[in-house]
Write a protein that binds this DNA or RNA. Structure first.
Lengths: 361, 361
DNA sequence: CTGAAAGCGCTTACAG
DNA sequence: CTGAAAGCGCTTACAG
């Protein structure tokens, strides 16, 4: 198998040897080194790095071989300076559930790992006066390449407006569509609420309470609406005195769980709009010396770790958080100001039946 | 109050007006704009930005006023390129407990918020063949300014060696000193183990089991050693058949909890080396129809959310994770290759008594 | 298909 | 205490 030799072909094995010999001090190669060793201009190397079609195929191959051989990696900082942007993806969040944050984070990182991008965390406080200003500063100074917003900051129109104004691609994760399709991952929380209702209705419950989540969270509205829709399909409703206002925290679930026990007549089941509150209700029952699910059936929402740690283990609607993170990151990479990207942009909650629900006595 | 006017004084109010008038398109000011408006060279502006002492006090004041007035913010990318480093702090971790990760993260961000630095997340798999290589690539390409390592990656000598070789400051969070003082945050897990032992001994327990954590985790060794030391002070020991090997997961606690029930004679108490495993033990008891703490007293370790979600709520040794993150970040900023930094670099677990422990019957 | 010049927004090294 | 020149490692804009 004779190696055919064209005048423009780069002998990258030899070039790599030259590099190794002259670089005893372990300096990282730059684009200039690659250009010199390949005998081309750095602009040509730049074209190869950026997958420009305007490069001779043989030249491209030779340069790519050389790049691999000497372990050249373009400096994201220098590229970023020239491109006027960074290789950083920002995750802006205010959700108080640690398990949610970490799962979303892992999902995003699943996707970023194969790219040259890094994930920068930015927790924030929506109630702060300087929230928008702070976020803007963060995004502008870091010159973020893209941003992923999770609930409830994803629901903030002002923030989305700022992002559009600066011209940074962003993806919003929310329970319903709040923006153009190419900017959304929709989690359809309503469906989870509906399934929770069907489950309780099928078990034969008729006196059913509901613990709503934080008023300002869209997911809370959706989960409740879905639940009430689901009950309606069975001819059931939640009477006003059975609707309790929580705030998605365990503590609120604990307090409201105690209130439920005082309701007259007592409900036989309750839908808590997230697992943390459901866990609080279970604890309130235990504190009162009652035994769930005999005393009260409890359905949660999320299926994060808490759901399986408590006793009885929670029947709950699963939020596939890691997958949500993954989809959001994929969509961010597909983002295109004009067209709609291809991949899926929806997830659906699925009811996981465990031990916290049973037929009413 | 007459304003005294020196020839070198900068009228930054006027300069700011000039800027606003000539910048209708909303371009961000650069160092060149500041220099031009102030009538100085950009090197002088650079000196002000970098707090060089070699600047006339009046000049410094004028430039600082101008900077504030027009909202100039040095570009971290450009500074980084010139400085050959970034303004990014990396958190490298492999701990599987989401609550731990998020708390550490929040602690680090508490400190970073006031600086111009951002936090980049880098989860990793220590068992991967390319773990060290991957981490090195990440650190070199991102030109990380500093790195914070949490258990168990913080216990990896190879990684620390790579960091030293590259010359990137790093802080290791671990249960004992593994490195020079200026590089360590020590969590003293042994003390928590000891307190757990004292607690059970004082309650009158004598037949006590122990569930160890992941073998490869130093914290597991420390928590166990502390526990056995603590018992020894009361003349007690854990017989070999009462020592069970877990791996810090809920599932291992669940499986081992079932085994404990078969022990003959059964122990009256168990120390699980973290909350997840303790939660598993509680669930195993519930599954078996037993009622803790009557059937078995259980002590955990960490006091993350899980500890208060389960029933009965866990008596546990608290790991102040957010504080640990804060201290690690502060120490990173104080880091100095020569001297030892000033701030505290130790935390101590504290036993929190709740409902999962009682006197043996 | 390829390259020389200028520039991204900062700093170092040198000179005064 | 201050500044002009060159450079960090890339890219854009232009020319061929």
């Amino acid at each position: 198998m004779g190696r055919h030799s064209k005048k423009s072909e780069i002998d990258f094995a030899a070039a790599a040897r030259t590099w190794a010999e002259n670089n005893k001090d372990g300096r990282k190669p730059t684009i200039n080194d690659v250009a010199r060793l390949a005998g081309v201009s750095k602009k040509t190397v730049s074209r190869v790095i950026n997958d420009s079609p305007l490069v001779n195929e043989a030249t491209r191959k030779g340069i790519n071989g050389l790049i691999k051989a000497i372990g050249y990696r373009p400096d994201p900082q220098a590229r970023g300076l020239a491109f006027r942007r960074s290789y950083l993806v920002g995750m802006i969040y205010d959700n108080p559930t640690p398990q949610y944050i970490v799962k979303i984070q892992l999902g995003i990182l699943d996707v970023l790992r194969k790219t040259g991008y890094e994930l920068v965390m930015h927790p924030c406080d929506r109630k702060s006066d300087t929230f928008i200003e702070d976020a803007r500063k963060f995004i502008e100074v870091s010159k973020l390449w893209g941003v992923i917003l999770t609930p409830s900051v994803s629901e903030d129109e002002r923030l989305a407006e700022v992002l559009r104004e600066i011209g940074v691609p962003y993806i919003r994760v929310a329970s319903i569509a709040l923006d153009m399709e190419r900017r959304m991952i929709i989690t359809n929380d309503r469906v989870g609420g509906r399934e929770a209702a069907h489950h309780l209705a099928k078990l034969g419950h008729t006196r059913i309470a509901l613990i709503a989540g934080r008023r300002s969270f869209r997911s809370s509205k959706e989960r409740r609406a879905g639940f009430e829709e689901g009950l309606a399909e069975f001819g059931l409703t939640v009477p006003p005195e059975y609707v309790l206002q929580g705030d998605y925290t365990f503590e609120s679930g604990l307090a409201l769980g105690a209130q439920i026990l005082d309701l007259d007549p007592p409900p036989t089941a309750v839908f808590a709009s997230n697992d943390e509150m459901a866990a609080g209700v279970l604890q309130a029952l235990h504190v009162a010396g009652q035994t769930p699910p005999d005393a009260l059936s409890v359905v949660g929402f999320d299926d994060f770790e808490t759901a399986t740690r408590v006793w009885p283990r929670l029947t709950t609607a699963r939020t596939p958080a890691r997958e949500i993170g993954r989809l959001a990151a994929e969509r961010l990479f597909e983002f295109d100001d004009d067209g709609a990207p291809g991949g899926p942009n929806q997830t659906t909650p699925r009811l996981i039946e465990r031990d916290s629900t049973r037929r009413p006595k």
